[in-house]
Amino acid sequence: MSAARFQSGDTVAVSAAYPPGHVRTPYFIRGKSGVVDSIAGAYPNPEELAYGRDGMPALPLYRVRFKQTDVWPDYAGPANDTVVIDLYEPWLEPTS
């Protein structure tokens, strides 16, 4: 695997991409920004594994935490509620 591009505490944006095949980035989180909670290791690329290839090189996998009020503009719960999602590095972009 390549060295992880992001560190805990970094703010990242999830790509607003909508490819047609097998991906593990939920639709609802695309285009949203959150903070890297931790790095969960490196794993073969599921978008390759799904089609019978080996998925190498392994991709850094991040636990990214989002404020619910950033994910859902009409979120009905308290402002400190969050959602944490495991996301592979190619789906993440730095925010300025």
Binding site: G21, H22, R24, P46, E47, L49, A50, Y51, G52, G55
Partner: peptide
């Protein structure tokens, strides 16, 4: 069968 192949097939 890999997990992701199986998931892809289900999708």
């Amino acid at each position: 069968l890999s997990t992701d192949e199986l998931r892809r097939g289900i999708e």
